[in-house]
């Protein structure tokens, strides 16, 4: 069992949801992003998604696009993203990489899984890869004990939810809304219904992301899901604070607010 699976199992034993935070590696710099991700762990994130910045982030809204653009403009590379994932793993949190498919395929599917495992990473989220296209990835991630996280969506049929959940070995990522990444005022009913439909198909943990930005939203989701995923709201904190120390503090504060929300919501199960 890898670190991601341990963390999810321990939280389930405590009858609480996990808090999963996302930041792109290399924004504002590789070391700056590592500092911010450490602060997320200090604030209460159980799992960190280290984003691999990509030139064509078709599923991301303007906030993550802006951060990824800046990271790429400064030349962040795949080995540096893996290094950042290793630094996160050293904190004891579960460290995952979130990446569009082409950078992984181009790096070498087996090499990517192997290099990530070597630095202590324990999972990869692949938002534009469906299980039907994932043959080589399933083989490589099994071989190197890297958790696989595929996504389900409000539009997914029961057949596709079952197929997708069966291919996951970390958790199932339930997209709360139809749309790209970015904070939203309301997460809405689609998320709860999707989690229920996914639970009908699998015993895997089901975590909810897309649009979550506040402690209250985290509490609402933690009442029914195994995890709450927050991305753009963390990136926003760094974009809004040009002083890196203030940015890191803001990220830590947001993590604490969300962690409190997760515990509050978990208590209402």
């Amino acid at each position: 069992m890898n670190r991601l699976q341990d963390v999810l199992k321990a939280a389930r034993a405590e009858n609480r949801a996990v808090l999963i935070g996302y930041l792109p590696a290399g924004f504002p710099s590789v070391d700056g992003s590592i500092d911010a991700m450490r602060a997320m762990v200090e604030g209460g994130c159980d799992v960190i998604e280290v984003g691999l910045p990509y030139s064509d982030p078709a599923m991301d809204g303007p906030v993550i696009q802006a951060a990824a653009d800046q990271a790429l403009a400064r030349g962040v590379s795949t080995p540096e993203v893996i290094r950042a994932a290793g630094a996160v793993a050293d904190t004891g949190a579960a460290s995952l990489i979130m990446s569009y498919w082409n950078p992984i395929e181009h790096y070498g599917v087996d090499r990517f899984a192997s290099d990530l495992a070597a630095v202590g990473g324990s999972g990869v989220i692949t938002p534009d890869l469906i299980p039907e296209e994932a043959g080589p990835w399933i083989e490589a991630s099994d071989k190197h004990d890297i958790g696989r996280v595929f996504l389900v969506a409000p539009s997914s049929t029961p057949e596709r939810i079952a197929l997708t959940a069966a291919a996951c070995t970390g958790f199932v990522y339930a997209g709360a809304v139809m749309g790209v990444t970015g904070a939203r005022d309301q997460v809405g009913h689609a998320a709860r219904s999707l989690v229920e439909r996914t639970r009908a198909a699998t015993d895997q943990p089901v975590c909810v992301g897309l649009g979550v930005s506040t402690g209250d939203q985290a509490a609402e989701i933690a009442a029914y899901a195994d995890g709450v995923i927050v991305g753009s709201a963390f990136v926003r904190r760094l974009l809004d604070n040009r002083d890196p120390r203030k940015g890191v503090d803001a990220v830590r504060e947001l993590a604490a607010e969300l962690a409190e929300g997760v515990r509050r919501g978990s208590g209402q199960r």
């Binding site: 599923m59 498919w101 938002p127 534009d128 890869l129 469906i130 039907e132 296209e133 595929f150 996504l151 389900v152 969506a153 409000p154 539009s155 997914s156 049929t157 596709r160 997708t164 997209g175 139809m178």
Partner: peptide, 12 residues
């Protein structure tokens, strides 16, 4: 070829 797209678009 293939279909390297998010699950959200699989239905459409």
């Amino acid at each position: 070829g293939g279909r390297f797209m998010p699950e959200a678009l699989m239905a459409v």
